[in-house]
Computed example of a mutant assay.
Amino acid sequence: MAEPQAPLTRLLVADDSKVNRQLLARSLELQGHSVECAENGRVALELLRRDTFDLLLLDIEMPEMDGFQVLEQLTGTPQLRDLPVIVTSSLEGMANIVRCIELGAEDYLHKPVNAVLLKARIGASLEKKRLRDQQKELVRRFATSEVAQDLEQSGFALGGRNLRGTVMFSDIRGFTALVESQPPQETIELLNTYYALMFEAINGHGGVVNQMIGDGLMAIFGAPLPLSDHGAAAVRAALGMVEMVERLNAERSGLGKASIRIGVGIATGEMVAGYTGTRQRATYTCIGDTVNLAARLEEHTKTAQRTILIDPATCVSLGGRIPVELLGPVALRGKALPVEVYAVVS
């Protein structure tokens, strides 16, 4: 049985000389690449924005838009700035080479280009791109789409920034007893289903789940990407979570399995959000009194026997759009003064 062939790599050649384009394209096709050509920088950019390529071979001296201008455009375009670029030019001088490298080019080869050297440089550039693509895929797989987007737009840097947002904590009530009453495989299956449903409810309202510990989770609304009306979004997400759990319980009841209940605490206010840890291992999170308050409200759902508890700031943000019930001032662990607590009426 024949082994499946690797997909062709797609290369774009940008050169104003028709002869150079044809010769280079023919040589690259013989090496097993799929090649398209552009007669100047403007056309090359149009093709790059319309289609997907693995590497760009770029001349510098071209009409309408030269190679330097193309490199500047690529650097300023998030979806194109990681595209490998090998400059092939007859321009002499170290200053031109340095400028191309500073603008993001992988390499600079003088014309006439040595075919063996070009093949080696293309191979090395494609391997670097493959590793970068793998890294991006890992980020997309193990981080939320919002965190992945923030990393692509802003890059990675330890530290945080002050912002106003909403924090949610949630966990399953009586989870320890549930774990003791069933096989481990059933517990894993339950958690996988539970988290899939909770992620759907939270992400559907613009929230970002940034921590999962056992049966508990923490979510942020308003970071890393801005979110208007983040307080109401968090409460709507919590109501969606409760509805998801009710549907899950109906299914579990039909299978003769125990129902589950959740408790949700939500607080709105100032916090510091960013990446914490080391450059080798970091996570996106937020810290501050707002975070602590949300955690304490989630704890208090057990005492109050209510599913969703919110603080005054979140209540104000609702503007009466979602019914709530004032439970009165409550002395929460770690808080010097009692906090007015509201229960969301679901």
Rank of each mutant, 00 (worst) to 15 (best):
residue 231 G to A: 03
residue 231 G to S: 03
residue 231 G to E: 04
residue 232 A to I: 11
residue 233 A to L: 12
residue 234 A to R: 01
residue 235 V to F: 04
residue 237 A to I: 05
residue 237 A to M: 04
residue 238 A to I: 02
residue 238 A to H: 01
residue 240 G to H: 06
residue 240 G to S: 07
residue 242 V to R: 08
residue 243 E to K: 10
residue 243 E to D: 13
residue 244 M to E: 11
residue 245 V to A: 06
residue 245 V to Q: 01
residue 245 V to I: 15
residue 246 E to A: 11
residue 247 R to Q: 08
residue 247 R to P: 00
residue 247 R to V: 03
residue 249 N to V: 03
residue 249 N to A: 03
residue 249 N to Q: 01
residue 249 N to I: 04
residue 253 S to C: 12
residue 254 G to C: 09
residue 255 L to G: 03
residue 255 L to V: 01
residue 259 S to E: 14
residue 260 I to L: 11
residue 260 I to Y: 09
residue 262 I to W: 11
residue 263 G to V: 14
residue 265 G to S: 10
residue 266 I to L: 13
residue 266 I to W: 02
residue 266 I to P: 05
residue 267 A to T: 01
residue 268 T to K: 06
residue 270 E to H: 13
residue 273 A to Q: 06
residue 273 A to M: 10
residue 274 G to D: 03
residue 276 T to P: 04
residue 276 T to I: 15
residue 276 T to M: 15
residue 278 T to F: 09
residue 279 R to Y: 13
residue 280 Q to M: 09
residue 280 Q to K: 13
residue 280 Q to T: 12
residue 282 A to C: 11
residue 282 A to D: 00
residue 283 T to N: 11
residue 284 Y to S: 01
residue 284 Y to F: 15
residue 285 T to R: 05
residue 287 I to M: 11
residue 288 G to Y: 04
residue 288 G to S: 05
residue 290 T to N: 09
